[in-house]
Amino acid sequence: TEVDLHLGDITIKLKDVSEEIVKRAKELFKNGWSAEFVKKWIEEAVK
């Protein structure tokens, strides 16, 4: 499945990412993480 994760003005296309990771990524962004950091976190999380 593909998900578009909207973080501010940046959209990250996610492939084969669990709902849990998407939820967590949104929380991290809301908590002040930059979109770049969230993207890196996701990449690490799906390895």
Rank of each mutant, 00 (worst) to 15 (best):
D4S: 13
I12N: 03
E2T: 15
L5F: 08
E19H: 11
E44R: 07
R24I: 11
L5V: 09
K13R: 14
I10S: 05
D4I: 15
L5R: 03
D9E: 13
E19T: 10
K13I: 12
K15R: 14
G8A: 05
G32E: 02
D9N: 14
K13M: 11
T1D: 13
A45F: 11
E27Q: 09
D9I: 11
R24N: 06
L28Q: 02
I42Q: 00
N31F: 07
I42H: 00
I10R: 05
V3E: 11
T1K: 12
S18E: 07
F29S: 03
L7R: 02
S34M: 07
L14F: 06
A45R: 07
K39I: 15
V38M: 02
E43T: 06
L7V: 05
K39Y: 10
V46T: 11
H6W: 07
E44P: 00
V46H: 06
I42P: 00
I12E: 04
E36F: 02
K47G: 12
K15N: 11
W41L: 02
V38T: 03
F37C: 13
K26N: 10
N31G: 10
A35T: 08
V17R: 02
K26V: 14
K15Q: 10
H6G: 04
W41E: 00
R24M: 13
V17Q: 02
F37T: 14
L14Y: 05
V22I: 13
E44Q: 11
H6T: 14
E27I: 07
A25R: 00
K39C: 11
V46P: 02
K47C: 09
V17L: 07
E20T: 10
E2W: 12
I10G: 03
A45C: 13
K47R: 15
A25Q: 00
K13Y: 05
R24S: 07
F29G: 01
G8C: 06
I21W: 03
K15M: 14
K30L: 14
I12A: 03
A45D: 02
K40F: 10
D9K: 10
D16S: 07
N31Y: 07
K23R: 12
A45L: 12
K39P: 00
V17A: 06
E43D: 10
V22E: 03
F29L: 12
T1E: 13
T1V: 15
D16V: 04
K26C: 11
V17T: 05
I42G: 00
N31M: 12
E36C: 09
D9A: 11
F37Y: 15
E36D: 14
E2R: 09
K13S: 11
I42R: 00
D9P: 10
A35Y: 08
H6I: 15
I12M: 06
K30P: 01
V46M: 15
W41S: 00
T1A: 10
A25G: 03
F29C: 03
V46L: 15
E44K: 09
D4G: 06
F29N: 01
K40D: 12
I21Q: 03
F29V: 06
I42L: 12
G32T: 01
G8V: 04
N31R: 06
S34Y: 04
I12T: 03
K30S: 09
W41Y: 08
R24Y: 10
A35N: 04
D4E: 14
H6S: 09
V3M: 14
K23L: 15
